[in-house]
Amino acid sequence: MLFRKNETMPQFSDRFLRIVAFAILMMSISYASAAAAHFVSDDVYDVLRTVRKIFGLGAAGIVIIPFLQLMRIRFKNEPACKNESEGFIADVYAKSTINAFSAGFVGLIFLEPFAAKVTPDLSPAFFVQTALSLMMAVLGINFFIKSRADDGELDDEFDDEFENEAGPK
């Protein structure tokens, strides 16, 4: 049994990926807060620390239940998951991860001279947090922009046409 009534495995898989992408965006904010905390006063530091915790825990919170659900389905009925990696949303997610990796790579290349010359006293944690925040932001934003592709709204009309022609059963 899945989360929503009449939800098929591919639909659940798509929804799961959307939740994961949203959680990754939340993690991006969490890491950005952690990175920004290196430059602020103690008062603002406490605020940023709270923001980091809220977004970090929120991300874990929204993913954990669908993740357990997915694991349960995988262990129970593996054949139902065979096509889940071949759909449009899974493809967009995979491409978004590649873009995120590329952004992280380029970001680190730009951060490297910055680290050596401008901010030699900064903790390495800052650079790790910045790179992670950048990569996660690119992944999440890229995913949501590409996954809301115009996919032919005319289909609803088409479906209605079939249903009307079929008549009541």
Partner: peptide, 15 residues
């Protein structure tokens, strides 16, 4: 065995 979104994006040439 795919989602409706997959079929619709294939139809319009997006995927």
């Amino acid at each position: 065995g795919v989602s409706r979104k997959t079929i619709s994006t294939i139809e319009v040439g997006k995927f």
